[in-house]
Simulated assay, not measured.
Amino acid sequence: MRRLRAMIVKEIWAVLRDPKTRIVLIVPPFLQLFIFAFATTLDVKNAELAVLDRSGGRTAVELVQRIEGSPNIHRVRRLASEADLADAIDDQHVIAALVIPEGFDRDVAAGRPAGVGLVLDGRRSNAAQILAGYVQQIAADLGGELKPQVTKVAGSSEVTAWYNPALDYIWFTLPSLIAIIVSVAGLAITSQTVARERELGTFDQLMVSPLRVHEILMGKMVPPLLVGTLNGTLYMVAARVVFGVPFTGSLLLFYLSLLVYMLALIGVGMLVSAASQTQQQAFLGSFLATTPLILLSGYASPIDNMPGWLQIVTYADPARYFLVIVQGLFLKAMPASAVFGQLWPLALIACLTLTAAAWLFRARME
Results as ranks from 00 to 15, higher is better:
R58G: 10
S257Y: 00
E197M: 07
A39L: 14
P302L: 08
Q129C: 02
S157Y: 06
Q192C: 00
A282S: 04
W309L: 15
L323G: 02
V182Y: 01
E215P: 06
A128N: 06
M334L: 15
L259E: 05
D18L: 11
G249Q: 03
L177S: 03
V182P: 01
L271H: 00
I181K: 03
A316S: 10
N72D: 06
V272K: 01
G249T: 05
N231S: 09
T59E: 07
A80Y: 12
A128L: 11
W344G: 03
A363P: 01
A127H: 07
N164V: 15
Y299E: 06
L288S: 11
S176C: 13
A96H: 05
A161H: 13
P318R: 07
Q311Y: 05
F340E: 01
V61L: 13
I312H: 12
K332V: 05
S191N: 03
V208W: 00
L63C: 06
I67A: 04
G69T: 01
P175M: 13
I12E: 02
T151G: 15
M7G: 10
R2C: 00
L293C: 12
I67G: 04
L177P: 02
A358H: 07
C351L: 15
G219Q: 08
D90K: 14
I189A: 04
F287P: 00
F36D: 02
K332Y: 11
E102D: 13
L52C: 08
L146Y: 13
F104W: 07
I216Y: 00
G308Y: 00
Y299V: 11
A356G: 11
T40S: 10
L295I: 14
A347E: 00
L16F: 14
R112C: 12
I23V: 14
V222K: 06
E158G: 08
L288D: 02
V245A: 11
D84A: 15
A47G: 09
T229K: 05
A139W: 00
L131S: 09
N46Y: 05
V241Y: 13
L217A: 10
L217I: 15
G269C: 02
E62K: 11
V245M: 09
T190N: 02
F104A: 13
S191M: 06
D87I: 06
